[in-house]
Write a protein that binds this DNA or RNA. Structure first.
Lengths: 216, 216
DNA sequence: CATGAGCAGATGTGATCACATAGACCTATG
DNA sequence: CATAGGTCTATGTGATCACATCTGCTCATG
C-alpha cells in the first residue's frame, strides 16, 4: 500500500494540480464539446487515485465546466444556442462593469501590456491557432479586469469563460476570417482617451462578436 | 463492511442529499459567518462516510458558499465590506437583466403569486424571523426570474445569493426596522404596468438596499 | 504568573476495495 | 439479415484505512 509516493510535490495537493490542469484545458478550448472523461482515465494520466480525480471533476461540474449525465458520466458540455446567448449576455453585463471599474486605474503600463498581448492575439489568428487565440484573447481581458480590483466579479467572468471554453474552440475552429482584433484596438483607444461610454461599447461588442459568428 | 445500507433512498445519491441540505442552510442564513464545519461532523450528522461529505463540501467551496483555509479547514465565509459591495453589484447587474427578460412573459398568475409570497415576506419581518425572511425574499425573486427562461443567468444569481447567505443573516439580524417590503410593491406595480425602466430601477433598489443598511 | 515546548486528539488527504449499474458487444433466433 | 436478449467489461459511488499535519491543551520552567 503506497500512500505518499511523491514527496517532491508537497507544495500543492494532488487534486489541486489535476483541477488546475483540467480547468486550463477546458477554458482554453483544448477539449472538444461533448468529449467524455472518466475518473480512472484522469487518475491514470495524472498518476493519482480516483479520489483526487473525483474531487477535481466535482469541482469543475459545480462551476459548469463539465456536464454530469444522469448516470454519472462526465463530459464537456454541448451548449444549445440559447445557452450560448445567455452566457454571452452574462459576459457583456459583467465584463462591461469590470472594464468600467478598471478605467480610472488604467495607466500607461497597462495599456502597453494590452498592446503587447494584442500582438500575440493577432499572431495566433494569422497562424489559425484556435487554442492560442483563445488563451491570448482571455489574457487580454483578464489583464484589463485585474485592474478593477473586483475579485468576485472577475471570478464570475472566468466561470463564464470556463463554461464557454469547448464551444469557443468549436466556434473559432470554423472561423475563416483572418482579421486582426478590431474591438481590442477600440478598447485600447477608449482606455487612452478615458472614454467610458466608448469603452463600454467596445467591450460589449468584443464580447458578443462570437455570437454574431454563430448566427451568421 | 457495510456498503449499501439504505436501499430506501436510491433515488438520489448521498452526496447530493448532503449537498442540497448544506446549500439550503447556507443560502438561507441558517449558519453564521465564520462557522466551522468538519467532514467527519457532516458525515456523522447525515449518517454517511467522509466521501460524500467531502464531495459536498468541495462543491460548495467551488461555488463560493464555503471558505477553505490554507490548512484545509472549511467554514462559512466572513465577507469584507468590499466583497459585499461587489456581490451586491453583481446582483444588481444580473437580476435587473433577469427581471427585464421576465417582464414580457409576466402574466396575472405570476403577479398573484408574487403578491402571495410578499405577504409571507411581510409576516416574517413582523415576526423578526431572519431565516424565514431571507427564504421568502429569495423565493420572491426566484419566482420572478424563472419567467425569464434563462437558466444560466438564474444559476449565477443563485450563486451570488449563496455566497451572501451567512452575511445576510448577520445583516438582517441587526436590523431594527419592521417596515414592509416597499421595493417589492414597486416591482409588482411595474410588472402590472409593463413599465420596464421602472422595473429595472425597483429591482436595483431592492437588491442594493441591504448595502445601505451596511453603510448606515 | 506568564510563556513556551510537547503531547494527544482531531482533521484533511489520498489509496484501495466492494458493489451496483450502464453501455457495448456478441450471439442466437425470428 | 435484423433484432432482441444476455453477458461482460468499464465506470461511478461510497466505505474504510493509513498517514501527515494542524490545533488546542497541559505542564514545566523562567
Amino acid at each position: 500500500m503506497m500512500v505518499s509516493q511523491r514527496p517532491s510535490e508537497v507544495s500543492t495537493s494532488a487534486h489541486e494540480r489535476v483541477y488546475r490542469t483540467l480547468r486550463s484545458r477546458i477554458m482554453y478550448g483544448e477539449i472538444a464539446p461533448g468529449q467524455a472523461l472518466t475518473l480512472r482515465g484522469i487518475g491514470r494520466e495524472f498518476e493519482v487515485s480516483m479520489t483526487p480525480a473525483r474531487e477535481s471533476v466535482r469541482r469543475l461540474v459545480a462551476e459548469g465546466a463539465l456536464f454530469l449525465s444522469s448516470s454519472g458520466r462526465v463530459s464537456t458540455p454541448e451548449l444549445s444556442n440559447e445557452r450560448i446567448e445567455e452566457l454571452a449576455a452574462l459576459r457583456a453585463l459583467i465584463e462591461v462593469e469590470l472594464a468600467s471599474r478598471a478605467l480610472p486605474r488604467a495607466h500607461m503600463a497597462l495599456i502597453d501590456r494590452l498592446q503587447g498581448i494584442n500582438m500575440t492575439v493577432a499572431e495566433m489568428i494569422s497562424k489559425r491557432d484556435a487554442v492560442g487565440y483563445i488563451r491570448a484573447n482571455l489574457e487580454f481581458h483578464r489583464a484589463l479586469y485585474l485592474r478593477a480590483q473586483a475579485p468576485a466579479m472577475l471570478a464570475m467572468a472566468e466561470t463564464v469563460w470556463l463554461q464557454m471554453g469547448p464551444t469557443m474552440r468549436a466556434l473559432y475552429g470554423r472561423l475563416r476570417r483572418t482579421e486582426p482584433p478590431r474591438n481590442h484596438k477600440l478598447i485600447i483607444a477608449a482606455l487612452k482617451a478615458g472614454d467610458e461610454p466608448g469603452l463600454r461599447l467596445a467591450v460589449r461588442s468584443d464580447v458578443t462578436q462570437g455570437l454574431r459568428m454563430l448566427a451568421g
